[in-house]
């Protein structure tokens, strides 16, 4: 259950972003559409606890993010929120498998090889597990970054422009993969994008 209430944020005092209230049941998804510069990424960072709002609050599973200490917030994020970024990023010095192990370690979870194996298989990149992820093809990188986001069975998956640099086929793939992964772990999926191609794939959408 994700709830945001009367969120505002300002980078400086001249312009303040105001965001609509969001209330999302478990197992549902939400597409947030909007043009560039309207504060989409800011909203996503607020929901992930990467930024603290000027006013209002974010609540995930009954926990209000703003009440957590910085270290606890980091742990909470690692355990309960999976992030997918526009351009995939990894720890360059590690192989894909080691990246996944690190994600488990940082969330304070057991380093479960079977679980990472399962995720890799569901995304069909098992054969790339010993490769450095930044050397994979773009489609593989996008799948690898989804693997890292869903590995710890998060309650909330936040995706920031996951498809904007992809062609139509890959766009479709990523959208269905995200929905499928969210469904397997019973997570709420929030996708923020300016990419209208995605509109057809989501039940709920709001326009910023």
């Amino acid at each position: 259950m994700l709830i945001t209430r009367s969120l505002t944020f300002s980078y400086d005092h001249r312009a303040t972003f105001q965001f609509p209230d969001i209330s999302l049941e478990a197992g549902t998804d939400l597409l947030i559409l909007g043009k560039s510069g309207i504060g989409k990424t800011t909203l996503l960072h607020l929901m992930a606890g990467l930024l603290s709002p000027g006013t209002g609050h974010v609540e995930l599973m009954g926990t209000e993010l703003q009440t957590l200490s910085p270290a606890k917030l980091d742990r909470f994020r690692g355990r309960h929120i999976g992030l997918v970024f526009q351009r995939p990023h990894f720890i360059r010095s590690l192989s894909l498998q080691e990246n996944l192990a690190l994600v488990q370690y940082l969330a304070g979870k057991r380093q479960d090889k079977a679980r990472s194996q399962q995720v890799l298989e569901s995304l069909d990149i098992t054969h790339k597990r010993y490769d450095r992820p930044h050397l994979l093809s773009q489609g593989e990188q996008q799948r690898a970054t989804i693997a890292m986001a869903v590995l710890n069975n998060p309650q909330l998956i936040l995706a920031d422009e996951p498809t904007s640099s992809l062609d139509d086929t890959n766009c479709l793939n990523v959208a269905s993969l995200l929905k499928q992964q969210a469904a397997t772990t019973g997570a709420q999926l929030v996708v923020i994008t300016h990419d209208h191609r995605l509109k057809a794939h989501f039940q709920n959408s709001i326009l910023l």
Binding site: L50, A71, D74, H89, I91, R92, L106
Partner: peptide
């Protein structure tokens, strides 16, 4: 590695 560090924070790494 600035980005990697930020990325690690999103995966749950603390500042320390």
């Amino acid at each position: 590695q600035q980005y990697e560090m930020a990325l690690m924070r999103t995966y749950g790494a603390t500042r320390w």
